[in-house]
Design a binder for these strands. Structure first.
Lengths: 170, 170
DNA sequence: AGAAACATGTAAAATGTTACATGATTGT
DNA sequence: ACAATCATGTAACATTTTACATGTTTCT
């Protein structure tokens, strides 16, 4: 099963919100989708070129805009089954081998993870405030759902890290 | 920054617990690490061959065993900084573009996500019971920490999915 | 004018999955 | 005997990142 259309989905989705340059697509993915997605320039530009050749996006003067065919394709991609390969979590992989790593280094990792989650919560609070103020944005309810997902995960991570630090401390 | 040693880390780590065949490494990663890691045969066998050539593992009769040099390498890899590229979350990517997907299909995705998280919780409860009973296992405390991480994330996902279903339903 | 950000792209290298091939061992 | 599982591996393909090259626009 190919995971190929994933980048295409992200790019078409970004353009479905508003027309953008490739540079802006990357910026949008880094900032707005940054907590659950990533793409590099090396992926975005070739994808845009291909989508343009297929008539799914067009480039007027500066920005790329999605075409009606592009919207149809986006709906198709959104309906495809979600890729369920487990994301690789380097933190959990290291803690799993914590006996070799040692208790002190393991606790350090957990402290870092806690701090990172708190910082994520602060960032998301800012984004939430901004999105909540855009009462006429038709994407608003959906954006808030993804923000809530990030917040729920981050809060869970803070609690888990604290419990685990206690469990590993003598 | 290269993410190259990630597979090497997973394989050496698995062998640090006990000697195993390549097939068993794959099974261990699928079952025990399955909630936060994945490797395919196409990665594992070439990695084992390379590690053997470098003297980090040796193959006696059946299984591969980690060597002292391999343990030293594992400690090195565990100390390396964690790769922080955001995992790609196909569910959140789809919900982000939920306006195009439509409210009903979005709610369906959330229901699936909730069911999946509940199923994960059930699986983890079984694994937890098993690990908790192994009171002499020196890895026990660390294994429990990773299980707790999976449980915390899954519980957060259940709550988030329920809240979000409510938020998107008219 | 100079620095920073914007903008587009390519090539090489690394990474990873999938499909296939092959055979041994174990359980029924 | 047959099926399932264990076991090892390779080749082709797909994906993705990284590093580099190049030029424009905007801000101070």
């Amino acid at each position: 099963m190919s995971r190929r259309p994933q980048t295409e989905l992200a790019v078409l989705g970004a353009l479905s919100v508003e027309p953008m340059t490739g540079y802006a697509v990357r910026a949008a993915i880094t900032s707005t989708l940054g907590h659950f997605w990533s793409e590099s320039f090396g992926q975005i530009y070739p994808t845009l070129a291909r989508l343009q050749a297929e008539g799914l996006v067009r480039k007027e003067d500066g920005p790329f805009a999605i075409t009606p065919a592009g919207r149809a394709r986006l709906r198709e991609l959104l309906a495809e089954p979600i890729d369920r390969t487990p994301p690789r979590n380097g933190l959990l992989l290291r803690l799993f081998f914590g006996r070799t790593l040692g208790p002190d280094a393991s606790v350090d990792l957990l402290r870092d993870a806690r701090a990172e989650a708190l910082s994520t919560l602060a960032t998301l609070a800012g984004i939430r405030a901004e999105v909540e103020s855009e009462t006429d944005n038709p994407d608003r309810a959906y954006f808030l759902v993804t923000i809530a997902a990030g917040e729920a995960t981050a809060r869970a991570q803070v609690e888990w890290a604290e419990d685990s630090i206690a469990a590993l401390s003598p």
